[in-house]
């Protein structure tokens, strides 16, 4: 993949296309934590691709490409989020996913895990688990205090854990 980044930096459009194929699923997952509408997700992913293509020369090291494009995506998502003044889904309207005791983890999907979290928690926990960001990296990306990040991760994990009524964990 690093070779592909080097080629894309030199202007190879096919190489850039391959990079997008590689990251698009994660871009979608992250955008979904911030934006509720599929149209909004499509728009920000499109804008991210265009912005990344224009400025790919700014990627300092090829191995940093994914984190770099995620940074662009998160900023685009935040712009859309603020612009549309998206309302947070009230927690009492969130359907409880888990009804009874034991839960088979392997059958759960991301949406199941995130349903009881607010938008900030969704984004932070996704970056933490999906992309292995450290709390320091998340705090720099989102420009919030590192302790705040740690608190939100902890709270989100606690909410996920508590979602399993009498559950395994």
């Amino acid at each position: 993949m690093e070779e592909t980044v080097i080629l894309a930096k030199k202007g190879d459009k096919q190489a850039f296309s391959n990079l997008i194929d590689y990251v698009k699923m994660d871009l979608y997952k992250i955008a979904k934590t911030r934006l509720h509408s599929e149209d909004d997700i499509l728009d920000v992913v499109q804008e991210t691709i265009i912005c990344a293509y224009k400025s790919i020369k700014n990627v300092d090291k090829p191995e940093n490409f994914k984190k770099w494009i995620i940074k662009i995506l998160v900023n685009k998502c935040n712009d859309t989020y603020k612009k549309k003044k998206l309302d947070k889904i009230p927690l009492d309207e969130v359907e409880d996913v888990f009804s009874l005791n034991s839960v088979e983890f392997e059958k759960l999907e991301i949406d199941d895990l995130l349903k009881n979290l607010n938008d900030d928690e969704k984004l932070i926990i996704t970056l933490y688990y999906l992309e292995n960001y450290t709390s320091k990296e998340i705090s720099k990306l989102l420009k919030i205090n590192e302790n705040t990040v740690k608190t939100r991760i902890s709270r989100a994990k606690s909410k996920i854990r508590n979602s399993f009524k009498g559950g395994i964990y």
Binding site: M25, Y28, K29, E106, E109, I110, D112, L113
Partner: peptide
Amino acid sequence: IRKIFKKDIKL
């Protein structure tokens, strides 16, 4: 949790 996040989804 990490495994669930890493699961592929249908785009």
